[in-house]
Amino acid sequence: MELCIDRVSKIYGNKIACDRISLSLHKGVYGLLGANGAGKTTLMRMMCGVLCPTSGTITFDGIDVGKEEYRDLLGYLPQNFGYYPEFCAMDFLLYMAALKGIPKVHAKEKASELLELVSLKNEAKKKIRTFSGGMKQRLGIAQAMLNNPKILILDEPTAGLDPKERIRFRNLISSMSAEKIILLSTHIVSDVEYIADKILLMKAGQMIHQGTLDEILSVIKEKVWECRVEKNKADELSEKYPILNFRNEDEDIFLRLVSEEKPCEGANRTEAVLEDLYLYYFNELH
């Protein structure tokens, strides 16, 4: 099982949304991290065959992304989606099942199973327009899983979910990661930190890092420091080093920063977490 992305680019006018991205995905959970506008959605759309790459190819075990066969293996949750206002949750799933070619007899069974999985069983007959953002999102996730996809691509699946729903979503993903390639994008680090087998880091249309959590953390390993300094000193340090985080503490400023060696007196080295790496790349402080 291999999803192969080979030198894929997407260019809009003179803006490069994806720049020669090459990836090889196997079964497991992949977390695609990046700031807004990094090209995550563009990449995912191309992987779902709804957007044509300017150049490059995407194949799954030799099946091209443009083929029906590929779409048969795909489950996709777009970032923004609407719904037909006359539909209730069940109608919606049955409609999507029909588009996925699932015969009605099986679709009903599968749909109620999934509604239960995303805790919408009691809302099955309710109109979607009465749903909260989180409920709609859960319904979208259920929709993507109707055809038992081998490739599950979820664009910002946790958007609109409350903390409890987030945890449930993470458990859901971990429980079904076997025999599937799951790719989910987010800009919230904690969504993927513990469930993703591999993390992909995207910036300005390029894949800047990919690997397991430990692998990609090695970039800043042993380089994260915490210290508490005066305002002037803090300004000085922020000129010199990338700042991950800061907060005011009484007269002083608490800083968390990246540095090869000890940045100042009294600085303590701390363990690097994914959040640090994310901030290191995407923080607007520097």
Binding site: G49, Y76, F81, Y84
Partner: peptide
Amino acid sequence: SRSSMFKMEEMEAGCLFGLSQI
């Protein structure tokens, strides 16, 4: 043009019977 009116295009396009067939 219902699909585009209700922003269903993208979701529908990712299905086995894609947008063109709908």
